[in-house]
Design a protein around this nucleic acid. Structure first.
Length: 536
RNA sequence: GCCCCCGUAGCUCAGACGGACAGAGCAGCUGCCUUCUAAGCAGACGGUCGCAGGUUCAAAUCCUGCCGGGGGCACCA
């Protein structure tokens, strides 16, 4: 199917060659926004007109003439339009081929890509401090990270999901102190953790428990449960503390020293990050002997490389933007290729409740727990809401809208399409309709615009998956699924699969079409991590 | 002062390695349930693509400068 695209590009190349035109420019071939402009369209005549010294439409005309004899047989017609676009119109049969491909490959293989084959990637996401429950905003990283992992897997990458626990340092101490204080019936220190959960957990904590150890376990349990509620599971929960215990931090420091990028100044130890694109050098060991967060971070990423990953992806909130350069510098200072560390920055979530923005701070205690949001709106609505838009835009998560006003939540629109698909299959079965084998079915009966629209959209799924993966943009899958579901609703409304006035042959063809739709929706929903309900 | 993201319809957003009349959802208006679930479908309405220059046959898209919103520039994490 994408082989059609390759074919057409090849045709254009041949055409150019036969006209003795040498173009350095890549050949553009895309899906026109309007279907009147054909199934595929190229602007090559426009782009090559100037270097070739020929007016675009004239060049297009010559190209078409030279291409016509060599074009694949699915091409029905080639037209020149507008300023010089070359538009390819394909026979409907190609749509039926796409449909059969989807059916024969099924939901586990249709749209798969091999671009990530033999590349192992470590994706680190969420990684919120283990000092309390995840807040609602953290759901964005969970949903985004997990879906990105799904996408990478579908494109052949070997994916490892990882959560980094900053289980060392002042915040952990404060957390333990806050728990202990509550337990003892004392007021929590003003810079300690004030949240409601501290009170609850202190009550749960046995009298003889060590607040630091017990608290850590309690937090981990909470994090795991909340993420599981959202369908997010990690392969590794990596402890920062373990880096100290294993000596990895010391080793990293030695390694850096041996590479000559470390120096002492004012009683502190510095890393010469300016040698690797940073604005200024960074302290890695403070004058009081404590490492700053950078050093463990560098040691951690070194460890990831040592574990054999080819690519490291970190997903951070944009508030950590300032650390990207220095971490990359640290990685480069160790001799690793900084391009193998990819940091994706996402804009933070603004949570709105009762029309008012809510601050999300564990310390002050005004936080809204992700777990509660999941209970209120359900994991599907929550995930889809997080995956509705680009990670580059600020997401406003309005609790009232997501939980109450279902019309503003597209999750139902999409899931309803799936439920309708399932319903058709169910009713067909109840009516005793036996599905023939594809060879016995006449797919050329599928001529309704609704049917062809559906198949055109289906044909775009593989390239959409690839694009979404390469751009690290799961929301493009959301957009595709939403659009596809919409087309199905239109089909459902205008094209009955069975019943009065529908010939048995047409029913057979449409049953296959519906099956293909099921596969397409399923693939999209699985990548998004949203369930596909049989009925609603 | 420097760096990153955003500014497109009333609202939330697509479209951004330049292309053919700028798209969707929601809200509001108007139609459609005697055949597979109306959580649906259809129609109308709605836009100086933040502003100003520039490059180009062609700019929402690229360049420059402004304006507005958010976030960063520690011997805090």
């Amino acid at each position: 199917m994408s082989s059609i695209k390759q074919n057409l590009i090849e045709c254009l190349k041949q055409g150019l060659k036969s006209l003795d035109i040498n173009v350095a420019i890549g050949i553009g071939l895309e899906r026109p926004a309007r279907k009147e402009h054909g199934d595929w369209s190229s602007n090559i005549a426009l782009a090559a007109a100037k270097p070739a010294g020929v007016p675009p439409r004239v060049l297009a005309q010559k190209l078409v003439e030279s291409m016509e004899p060599i074009c694949p047989s699915v091409v029905k017609e080639i037209q020149i339009a507008g300023p010089g676009f070359i538009n390819f119109y394909l026979h409907d049969s190609w749509l039926y081929e796409v449909m059969l491909e989807a059916i024969s490959l099924g939901e586990n293989n249709f749209g798969r890509s091999e671009i990530g084959k033999s590349i192992s990637v470590n994706v680190e996401f969420v990684s919120a401090n283990p000092t309390g429950p995840l807040h609602a905003g953290g759901g964005r990283w969970a949903a985004f990270g997990d879906s990105l992992c799904n996408l990478l897997q579908f494109c052949g990458y070997k994916v490892h999901r990882e959560y980094y626990l900053n289980d060392r340092g002042k915040q952990m101490q404060l957390f333990a102190q806050s728990l202990a204080a509550k337990k003892a019936g004392k007021e929590v220190d003003s810079n300690g953790y004030q949240g409601e959960y501290i009170t609850e957990w202190a009550a749960e904590m046995p009298d003889d428990a060590d607040p630091a150890l017990w608290g850590y376990d309690r937090v981990l349990k909470d994090l795991r449960e909340t993420l599981a509620k959202m369908g997010v599971y990690f392969d590794t929960w990596y402890s920062e503390n373990s880096l100290i215990e294993s000596g990895a931090i010391d080793q990293t420091l030695e390694k850096l020293s041996s590479r000559g990028v470390v120096y002492e100044l004012d009683g502190a130890t510095w890393l010469r990050t300016t040698a690797f694109d940073d604005d200024k050098d960074r302290v890695i060991i403070r004058s009081d002997g404590q490492p700053t967060y950078v050093l463990p971070d560098i040691a951690y990423h070194r460890d990831k490389f040592q574990r054999g990953f080819d690519l490291l992806i970190d997903i951070w909130g944009s508030d950590h933007h300032g650390y990207v350069t220095r971490l990359k510098a640290g990685v480069a200072a160790l001799g690793y290729d900084p391009n193998c560390l990819e940091v994706i920055l996402g804009q933070l979530v603004t949570l709105v409740k009762n029309g008012q923005p809510v601050r999300l701070s564990k310390r002050t205690g005004d936080m809204v727990a992700l777990s509660d949001v999941l209970d209120a709106v359900g994991p599907d609505a929550a995930r889809l809401t997080f995956l509705l838009q680009s990670i580059d835009t600020r997401l406003v998560f309005d609790l009232d809208v997501v939980s109450s006003n279902t019309m503003e939540n597209p999750v139902y629109y999409i899931q309803y399409a799936y439920a309708r698909v399932a319903s058709i299959a169910k009713v067909a079965k109840e009516r005793g309709i036996v599905q023939l084998s594809p060879q016995e079915v006449d797919f050329s009966l599928l001529v309704h615009e609704r049917e062809k629209d559906l198949l055109r959209a289906l044909s775009e799924l593989p390239e959409t998956i690839l694009l979404a993966c390469n751009e690290r943009a799961p929301y493009k899958i959301t957009n595709w699924v939403r659009d596809f579901a919409g087309r199905f609703h239109g089909f459902y409304h205008d094209c009955y699969v069975m019943g009065e006035g529908i010939s048995p042959q047409l029913t057979q063809a449409r049953l296959y079409l519906v099956e293909a739709v099921r596969i397409g929706l399923n693939i999209g929903l699985k990548i998004l991590g949203v369930s596909a309900p049989e009925e609603m």
